[in-house]
Design a protein around this nucleic acid. Structure first.
Length: 553
RNA sequence: UGCCCGGUGGUGUAACGGUAGCACAACAGAUUUUGAUUCUGUUUGCCCAAGUUCGAAUCUUGGCCGGGCAACCA
């Protein structure tokens, strides 16, 4: 039975709007500022805005909110477009708020003509002072009563470059005593003699968010303008401007932004991590950016499923990283090709296996995918296995190798441990075992049942690679809201590099964008910084590890 | 202390006046040539109080708690 999927509150509103004939189709937009890379929180907004117009008739625009030339760059524009496409969405129109600078200017003139905006010569401090506090009404500046003619002239002069940065601003004339701080004559335009990434040096005045965002929504006939909760107090101003300007009545709706445990989600903080070289860049796989998740081996499907699961609502939330990990494991379990790799090797010698002999062992590429077929892996007398798969004095519940114990070598033979060697420091440097010829995988007549199966690599055939293991970037769940500088909570062990791990021969042709599961070790992908003579693999996520928990008991 | 928003298991999210459900996490067991996957089961919740009603997570009122708002940022 197909159960009714419940609607989120925005879908409720849209269904109502369509039902009562307010709209036949809808228009949404995703409005990033090109001043940083997109992160997983943006992915939620992208899935919401684009998802809505997949579900209901209509389309979604991509609009770069580029009203602050000093922080915005073309590099960010390009990364944002790449990330949205990778997530699997298509915008109808690619727009820039800067496309509307002339129209916006004319709207400002219209507001002045209506006596609803004025040029203020006050300093930033004086303006802040005049705004009052949340509990104390603001005080009007003397410039508030300038004539329309004078305001028109001064605003034109601002545009013409007659004034220096900060000398004058244009403000809306609303209500200095309004209990909503946003309504106390908000700034509309400021002077910035700065080079803009698109309009270059055409303008020296730039609209503020409040006089750009809503007006751009109207220009594009956005029916449902969806943003995050911090803009709720701006909505009365958004509506006031639409009313006074007599433009298309877009409506703003707000939802709670996504927060994830063990990371930070503000562009300012992420930029700090990049600038201070705490991470290698915006796409360092430890970052919560979309490009980092891509590089780390996350799939677009897993991120979309995650965004779908976390839902859309108005309450603050802090989502468990384990939920994201669940979705990537779920997706990769179906897709990833199984391969063998030994990260922390110790030598295993099969004393009764002929020297110089090699066999090709057949094994499945993905037991979850019947179309994934099989491959072969070379097997010989001397093998690499993981150090952690052998214990000198194993406890009862340890199902791996120990003196006298037997295990299955995955897709090969059952072996029984007959001895081991240590170096002077007491480290185990070699393990000896005998194999059971009649136990070969697929032709097993041994009648033996063993509890454990381990992975292995033939020493003469194995290739090497660098492997990078990532852990959470922060030591605590909510670094953004913890006391003091968030950087003091950075996890010093968030990156572990294994310079010389062993990988099976077939992995030497791995390509960026392919997904692998290194059996028993986790999901991995080839890093973009790999070269033909040096392969680098990133661990996307570990496998669930029940033994790790058991071990700790 | 002005205005605004919000409170459902550990974390998220449903319920639209009628049995509090789902996912993740946790725990227990079965299966397993990946201690993975899969399967089965278990634990844990409506912020409080009063009111309306045959019946309240849902409606009303009053509390309590959390968050936001005073950038020439968005």
């Amino acid at each position: 039975m197909s159960e009714e999927k419940s609607l989120n509150f925005i879908e409720d509103i849209i269904e109502e709007d369509i039902k009562n004939g307010k709209y036949k189709s809808i228009v949404t937009r995703f409005p990033p500022e090109p001043n940083g890379y997109l992160h997983i929180g943006h992915a939620k907004a992208i899935c919401l805005n684009f998802g809505l117009t997949k579900k209901y008739p209509g389309y979604t625009n991509l609009r770069f909110d580029d009203t602050n030339p000093v922080t915005e760059e073309t590099e960010y524009v390009d990364s944002i477009k790449a990330d949205i496409k990778w997530l699997g969405f298509e915008w109808k129109n690619e727009r820039y708020t800067s496309d509307y600078f002339e129209q916006l200017y004319q709207l400002a003139v219209k507001l002045i003509e209506k006596g609803l905006a004025y040029v203020d010569d006050s300093t930033p401090d004086e303006i802040a002072e005049g705004k009052g506090t949340p509990t104390k009404a603001g005080i009007a500046t003397p410039f508030r009563e300038r004539s329309i003619e004078e305001n028109l002239r001064l605003f034109k002069e601002m545009r013409d470059g007659k004034y220096k940065d900060g000398e004058k601003v244009l403000r809306a004339k609303v209500d200095m005593a309004n209990p909503n701080m946003q309504m106390r004559d908000p700034l509309l335009y400021r002077i910035k003699h700065a080079h803009h990434h698109r309009t270059e040096d055409t303008w020296c005045i730039y609209p503020m968010y409040d006089f750009a965002h809503g007006q751009s929504d109207s220009i594009e006939n956005i029916t449902h303008s969806i943003c995050t909760l911090e803009f709720v107090p701006h909505r009365p101003l958004y509506d006031w401007l639409i009313e006074k300007l007599e433009i298309f009545p877009s409506h703003q709706y707000e939802f709670a932004r996504l927060n994830l445990t063990y990371t930070v989600m503000s562009k300012r903080k992420l930029l700090q991590l990049v600038n201070e070289k705490i991470v290698s860049g915006w796409d360092d796989p430890r970052m919560p950016t979309i490009s980092a998740f891509r590089r780390r081996g996350y799939t677009p499907e897993s991120i979309r499923n995650f965004c779908e699961r976390v839902g859309v609502q108005k309450r603050e939330n802090l989502i468990d990283l384990s939920l994201l990990e669940f979705f990537i494991r779920e997706d990769l379990n179906k897709k990833a090709l199984r391969r063998m790799a030994v990260l922390d090797p110790v030598k295993l010698v099969l004393t009764n296996y002929p020297e110089g002999k090699t066999e090709e062992m057949e094994t499945e590429n993905n037991p979850e995918d019947i179309n994934a077929s099989h491959r072969t892996i070379p097997f010989s007398r001397e093998l690499w296995i993981e150090k952690e798969d052998f214990m000198e004095e194993p406890p009862k519940k340890f199902f791996r190798l120990g003196p006298g114990r037997a295990v299955r070598l995955k897709s090969a033979y059952i072996i029984q441990c007959t001895g081991f060697k240590k170096d002077d420091a007491g480290n185990i440097i070699e393990i000896q075992a005998e194999y059971l010829p009649e136990s070969k995988s697929g032709h097993d007549n041994s009648g033996l049942k063993v509890k454990g199966t381990i992975h292995w690599l033939s020493i003469p055939h194995a290739k090497t690679a660098e492997i990078k293991l990532y852990n959470r970037l922060f030591k605590i769940e909510d670094p953004a809201n913890a006391e003091g500088d968030f950087k003091k909570y950075i996890n010093p062990d968030s990156l572990q590099v294994i310079p010389h791990a062993f990988i099976e021969p077939s992995l030497s042709t791995a390509k960026v964008g392919e997904y692998f599961q290194f059996i028993r070790k986790g999901y991995f992908c080839l890093d973009k910084d790999s070269s033909t003579d040096k392969l680098v693999f990133n661990r996307t996520v570990t496998l669930k590890d029940t033994w790790a928990k058991e071990k700790d008991k």
